[in-house]
Amino acid sequence: MAETSNSHRKLRIHALRYNPAKADDTPRIQTYELEEAPGMTLFIALSEIREKQDPSLQFDFVCRAGICGSCGMMINGLPGLACRTVTKDLPADISLAPLPFFELIGDLSVNTGKWMRGMSEKLETWVHSMGQSTDLKRIEEAMDPALAEEVYELDRCIECGCCVASCGTARMRKDFVGAVGLNKMARFRLDPRDKRTDADFYELVGDDNGVFGCMSLLACHDVCPKNLPLQTQIAFLRRKMVLQGTKG
């Protein structure tokens, strides 16, 4: 437990500072020193810096509990959720940078939400019931319990953007939908309530911005803070889409 740790290291946090709204600003690294506390997370550390040292430092936290996906940033070179990164797992020198790929708002804050909305619109990430209506007064349709669990499993994505930021393909090709998008397609394909067929899904991800653009770099799989089975799902989707694209 946190209380048994009695380290009082001096942490040096090297944060990337840049305000794209200011015409004359250039990116630079600013170093903040602070004393480590037991059980300290990067959320606690950054909040303290903002309160006591530099009120202008920009970053995003919402839930501070690892569930909302707001606080993705590059932590010592790897994308991760800052709020659930405990400083004691890191060296005393910690470098922080905003997630690449996404539009930079300022310092450590990026606009993942805007990109995710665009991705959702493009891939139509919702259940398409194809006009089937539901009588809300009647007992709901049954669903296999194991299948429901599987769908939930893929629904756990928090749209943090870590997978996209870690993906070399996405970095090179801006229109790539990323592992987050592909996982969502796999999720809706699995869901019996979504009446779309593989032909429909092919229209959405059957090209080099979709599943065929993925070069299986698997960084997405390795960094995903929710441990989603991205490798398996992308492979699965690829098989289905190749089948769809090569038949008939």
Partner: peptide, 11 residues
């Protein structure tokens, strides 16, 4: 409709 070539090429 989307081209089938990306699928074929990937395969």
């Amino acid at each position: 409709r989307k081209s089938r070539w990306p699928a074929r090429m990937d395969l």
